[in-house]
């Protein structure tokens, strides 16, 4: 299922670079698209703002099928304080823009499954697919607005996985 998780993340990352190439983050000295996987980064006490943080949660499997189907719950967390140039008064607009980017990133609701442990990544036989996201209400912490969008990512286990 790691291949499915990697493929989902890489699909969203590639789409984000097209949707909003200016949404980036400086990580370990490198400028990257503004989306990261929480479990693949160093632990932090406060998640970064103005980027998308992907968090993997529940896991389920349907073992009765010819190919086992795995369902993984994915939470996309994003938050913003607005911009300094507007004194943070644009934080609502900034969060709305991130909402729109989530809607654009998740469409279409599938992507080819690749094995990113190989170099270059090896195409697999099936596709990873997911549901429409469920958006949670905004959470307000002082001047910080945050939201989570949750979806279920499905994939079929292939031979050798």
């Amino acid at each position: 299922m790691q291949n499915a998780k990697d493929s989902f993340y890489m699909a969203l990352r590639a789409r984000l670079t097209t949707i909003n190439p200016e949404r980036t983050i400086l990580m370990r000295g490198a400028v990257r698209p503004g989306i990261l996987v929480e479990e693949a980064e160093a632990p932090v006490s406060q998640l970064p703002t103005d980027v998308f943080v992907l968090r993997w949660l529940a896991l389920g499997a349907d073992l009765d099928l010819d190919s086992t189907m795995v369902a993984t719950q994915c939470e996309l967390i994003y938050q913003t304080c607005g911009t300094q140039s507007f004194g943070g008064l644009d934080r609502g607009r900034a969060l709305s823009q991130m909402d729109e980017e989530v809607l654009a990133m998740i469409h279409p609701f599938y992507t080819p499954k690749l094995n990113y442990a190989a170099t270059p990544p090896a195409a697999m036989l099936t596709q990873v697919f997911w549901d429409e996201p469920e958006f949670a209400p905004i959470t307000i912490q002082r001047d910080r607005l945050s939201r989570t969008a949750t979806t279920i990512v499905y994939s079929y286990q292939e031979q050798g996985e």
Binding site: D66, S67, L125, T126, F129, Y154, Y156, E158, G160
Partner: peptide, 11 residues
């Protein structure tokens, strides 16, 4: 490397 898979019912 596998070249096929057994597809369950369409989703």
């Amino acid at each position: 490397v596998s070249t096929w898979f057994s597809a369950p019912a369409p989703v």
